[in-house]
Design a protein around this nucleic acid. Structure first.
Lengths: 195, 195, 195, 195
DNA sequence: AATGAATGAGGTTTCATTCAT
DNA sequence: TATGAATGAAACCTCATTCAT
């Protein structure tokens, strides 16, 4: 603890704020207040506000990776893994939804090279993690799905979840029900198998 | 000449800037410089910077609506319309891509109610326009596709295009080729017909 | 009319505004809007905003002079004239009160030499007018009141009215009733006679 | 040293400026320059310029309260207290006069509710303080003066001092001499006793 | 290591005044 | 004479960052 504890405190304070503010509107003074430390202390743990933000993105990336693959197992067959994955994507309400929103809003800082690359890593990693797990499932399959199709499966599920989720944020439109997501996964799976 | 000319000038200057900056980093002084006017002149045409931004979003919404449905015609059959639509989505590099990026970055301002509602309108409208055109194509179909499936078709194509496009921005990954998009549309169409 | 009509329009518009704004918060654009003319037109009739303000003060000075001496007549005896005068002072609610407030607020511009001198003239003139009328009443008096006492009589009535009026503005405290004012005048008159 | 020192510095700098400028013409940059601090520092001690102004008014109120009752004692008899009080009012040249002028000019901001209420408090308080001291003097009186008359005594002295002082500012007219003030007080006192 | 007062650059916005029509 | 679009100086205020303690 000790030192690292404080670093964590700052990081969590920033995340709390970022749930309802964007990077630019988040002030170092509010971070300090929420973390219960002095404003200057932030600069002992982070070079500047932008670096702190990048660390936040890294943290979220890690956490989202965990959330997405929760319940997905290499032993299970592809279809059930896809179902779990689909629901995890859909489950972006609750913790995941909050973190995903932060990530989404972070896109507005993409003109900054370091933030862009942080976001790039997050996306690449996420796809890799998911793909590697799904690949393990392929062995258990009766019907073969070419490995190179996995990526497009992921993108389809991700993409539609993404759009529906975003619309629910901006226009209050209802999001998908778990049943609808099941249905979608089923369709995509069928599609990929037959193609 | 005249009044509207200057308003347009300001709007276009803002859009130019927003291509490589976000809302908060765009300064009124740079807008003025690019538009070739005095800073105070902005405030004769827009109440404040935020309102100017909302007008930018409205403009983009209108323009994107045109871009999306370019070449789509009510007389054509559903599949070819979907193909054109898919390519339009995919064609987000060039003008469309730039505008779409601005829209994407604008999401970070979603905590502001007026901007949120502007974004909400854009999304709702876009879906409506596309859906209404596709509905006209349904009559020309040999095989019937239930009208209520159209929305999910749109979301699938939009969603996957969205994800692939975003990844190409943040991680330099290649985006879809027109051929791949064609293929995707084919798949989605087949899927929707058979389900 | 024609030209002078417009000048009057501007002056009256300014006065309307000054009832609920001070000089600095009054904008030329609001003056123009209220007067139903273009902003630039103001500058055909007045050198600048400050000069317009000075003209407003002159107008108010003239009008207040009329209001104060309303009903006061050289033929009446001193006591009844004082009573009428006292009520006129007190009657600063209604038109007089509004104009007096503008004058009061104008004091904040006293650091400007021209405005200071305009205010100086107003005060000097007011006292002179009132004094000259009261002097005419002195002939009708049974008991003599030395002319040089008139000024202090005026100041006493004016002063107390002023204080009570100002308090009613800032603290909502009730102002004097006409009866109380009558009483005050009676007292002051008695005092001056006996001294 | 320390924190309060700087707050005081800012307050005093503002007061210095307000001696020859009004609220609106006083700029934060001049305050900072005079106080020898950075402009931003002002905002560590005051929410905004208007709040700083209100604090100035509060300070002046307190100081004027002290000046007014200087030399007035509950043990002394009413007449001599009135004399001292009268001279204190009259003594508004020097420190008191400067502060009173600021208060007077502040009236132009009376349309702002917070400033209006600050001014209201100042007036109410001032009257209360003076009244309570004079009430203590009443016990020492040979001739009784009804307590409820005290307020009108105060207003008469205040009022006439006020008018004379204001005229001396705007028209360079001489103000009252201490002897004249003594005389006035004598008159008022006689008047109140006999009525 | 921790503090938090101080900084000052830079942002948005207002508005009296000008001048081409 | 009248217009009103355009100006641009200058105001207030914010906030990431520094540094003496």
């Amino acid at each position: 603890m000790g030192t690292d504890n404080k670093r964590e405190l700052i990081l969590q304070a920033a995340i709390e704020i970022l749930h309802h503010q964007n990077y630019q509107n988040m002030t170092t003074s509010e971070i300090a207040r929420r973390a219960g430390i002095a404003e200057g202390t932030i600069y002992r743990y982070f070079q500047n506000k932008r670096d702190l933000f990048i660390e936040v993105l890294r943290f979220i990336s890690k956490r989202m990776g965990e959330i997405f693959v929760e319940g997905v197992s290499p032993e299970a067959d592809l279809k059930s893994n896809l179902r779990v994955l689909g629901k995890n994507f859909y489950m972006r309400h609750k913790e995941g939804s909050g973190l995903y929103k932060i990530l989404y809003k972070a896109f507005s800082e993409v003109e900054d090279d370091d933030i862009k690359s942080a976001l790039g890593n997050i996306y690449t990693q996420s796809v890799e993690i998911i793909k590697s797990i799904l690949k393990s499932s392929l062995g258990n399959e009766k019907v073969s799905v070419p490995e190179e199709r996995l990526e497009i499966i992921i993108f389809m599920i991700w993409g539609i979840g993404d759009i529906v989720w975003k619309r629910s944020i901006v226009s209050g439109e209802k999001t998908m029900s778990p049943a609808e997501m099941d249905n979608l996964v089923e369709m995509v799976y069928t599609l990929m198998k037959s193609s």
